[in-house]
Write a protein that binds this DNA or RNA. Sequence first.
DNA 1: ACCCAGGGTTCCCTCAAGGAACTTTCGATG
DNA 2: CATCGAAAGTTCCTTGAGGGAACCCTGGGT
Lengths: 152, 152
Amino acid sequence: MQRTSFGDMACSIARTLDVIGEPWSPLILRDVWVGMNRFDQIQADLGISRKVLTERLNHLVSEGVLERRPYDRRPRYEYVLTTKGADLVDVLLVMTRWGDTWLAGKAGPPVLHRHLACGEISHVDLRCDHCGEPMHAADVELLEGPGAAQTA
Amino acid sequence: MQRTSFGDMACSIARTLDVIGEPWSPLILRDVWVGMNRFDQIQADLGISRKVLTERLNHLVSEGVLERRPYDRRPRYEYVLTTKGADLVDVLLVMTRWGDTWLAGKAGPPVLHRHLACGEISHVDLRCDHCGEPMHAADVELLEGPGAAQTA
DNA sequence: ACCCAGGGTTCCCTCAAGGAACTTTCGATG
DNA sequence: CATCGAAAGTTCCTTGAGGGAACCCTGGGT
């Protein structure tokens, strides 16, 4: 991360940024998600400095987003998503939709997502988990929750 | 941002990070979303350096996520979400859900979201925009899209 | 004529990202 | 047995971005 740590704020966005807000972290998560599980694979794919990659992987492991596990009798390890980490991929899915919509331009999206349940090329859609209707920025009112306290 | 720019990668996640991946940017977006539209308000709320806040706001404006507009005959400006920016708040909604679920602990979520359409306290839920069924990390197969090219 | 508020700039300091070279472990190969 | 090589880090140096405080500029208000 940067100098200021966001983890102390009473804000789930800030706290989440404390986990994946550092540069490269979301891309590392993406790589692991799509099956690039080894250090050298990720390093080569992203072109990230090995030093920084080490730091990020350690952080993601310590946050419980990735699990580091041996895959050989030699000291070889691979990184896999935990349940907590897989849940975080939801954020990436939404980022993908936004990037595809607003940044892809004429060339179109670089990657397509096929929904296994229906077989269609699709994007995610945000809905209220109570009523099932669309839920976006303007559809929400913010209220103070039980965990409000500390500094904002 | 950091040294390396992600914008050239053929990846909508990387490109999106080029827009809001810099430290503080998502929190600035959140503040503007919840009605903190002025420089000094945001600066005081986040405790961010004025220098960095200036850089971030300029970047978000140049990316078309925020609009800077005068609200007085004196040189006073406020920042508001564009349509593009409001769409980006979806990412924040998902981050909030993840943080509420995995990081809030016993105290519970610091902020609650009430869905205006149904009146319930709720979270977002990700669904396939074709079939309406849940769509998460494991429900998706990746395929090369038309915009695939460049370096990864 | 002076004060004040909002919205920035400027300056300096420190620490993290980039990059390349080096290290360690252990199986495979000759 | 000695060497090779691949995977996964470490180490070291350089550069530039974030933090923080002080300063500036514009245009009402009193």
